[in-house]
Design a protein around this nucleic acid. Structure first.
Lengths: 210, 210
DNA sequence: ATCCTTCTGTAACCATTGTTACTGCACAGG
DNA sequence: CCTGTGCAGTAACAATGGTTACAGAAGGAT
């Protein structure tokens, strides 16, 4: 655990803080598809992501989903922090997009470290900053873009975070993330294939030139 | 300035912090419609709202607008804080929805006070928390609601923050805020009038029962 | 009063997205 | 090998929202 922490966070946290994290944190390794947080969950810990990708989803009363953004190594979940301040109920769902390693820190420490360590304060503020901007771009894409543009953006982003030009998703998977329907996504993907930008297969697709 | 501050913030900030704010802050009174922040502006100060309502807007490259949320007394602009951490360029526009009084605090103090005052830390974290959730509901309404529901929500929220069941807006104004077109809004408003929920007039409308 | 500008109402039309329904294909498991 | 299940392709249609165009009403300015 200590070497993982030092690798990812050694350059931003003071050694004493790293020590504290090692003391109170618990190491966790989760497989792809593992549901880390469900909407309405009471949060007891704050995750520090060591490796892998976590996707953060929003859902409404009817069960309609929407992908908000991905967390990558070095990220933490601002939503979690936000929740720790308030009623502590999660507003979002977190699912491992790939196998992932992370460290869970008890939320009680948050406040303490915020007073004690400048690096922690900067980290927390920076996380909020990044997450707010991430949410803003998500909002932009929903408000200002059409579905074909959103789809292209989605494929690009997914390829980026997984470092893989093969997208291992069914059309239905994509439709869920974009809060659309399978038929619509199939239609648009077919267009992209006709334009030579992607190549479709069963259960996956290749990005050729987006 | 001191009595304004004490009225709105006296119960959450320590007296020493109030003193510091009085020392370095500048009082500002702006009329309805005053543009406080434009997209791309470099931010030099952080606003603490004393009275009035500020609306926060997002805009894309083509100049299409979208209302994100309102700030009310006791609120501050998390976006501003977020911007102070990063490249300091504003991602949003802030316009006074009503006449408003506020205190501008130099951003250099933010970091200092965060280390020094627990109440300030809580205030800043809480602001982020509230703003994140506000952004989430905005996102919800765009992603999951249809225009008629969004319109009703908009009218209710506007009536709430202005404490006035008369909405002093033209159909075009509303269309801008909801990122729709005037004709669409007129159509939907007419339907609401036929349902007896509102009464339409030139340049304003009355909410009867929403 | 007359003119001009702005706001509103409305119709006709279009584009995008979502829905329903049905097809065939791929593949895993017996 | 057959069969069931899930995935993808496609057509026809519906609904929502956006666009264009035009007419008339309100209200201010001269």
């Amino acid at each position: 655990m200590i070497q993982n922490l030092t690798e990812e966070y050694g350059n931003i946290f003071e050694p004493e803080l790293i020590n504290e994290i090692v003391q109170v944190g618990t190491f966790k390794e989760v497989p792809e598809g593992y549901k880390l947080i469900e909407i309405g969950d009471y949060l007891r810990g704050m995750p520090l992501l060591i490796s892998g990708v976590i996707k953060i989803l929003r859902e409404d009363e009817d069960g309609d989903e929407l992908l908000l953004y991905y967390l990558e190594k070095g990220d933490t979940c601002s939503m979690t922090m936000a929740c720790c301040m308030g009623d502590a109920k999660s507003e979002i769902r977190a699912v491992a997009e790939t196998d992932a390693k992370l460290i869970m820190v008890p939320i009680q420490k948050m406040e303490e470290w915020t007073a004690k360590y400048k690096s922690w304060r900067n980290f927390v503020f920076n996380s909020y900053h990044v997450r707010l901007n991430e949410l803003l771009s998500t909002l932009d894409s929903i408000a200002f873009q059409k579905m074909d543009e959103r789809l292209i953006g989605y494929l690009k982003e997914k390829a980026r975070v997984t470092k893989d030009d093969i997208i291992h998703s069914t059309h239905q998977d994509i439709a869920y993330d974009l809060h659309s329907s399978r038929v619509v996504i199939s239609r648009l993907l077919k267009k992209l294939e006709e334009m030579g930008k992607i190549k479709l297969h069963r259960n996956y697709l290749e990005i050729l030139a987006l």
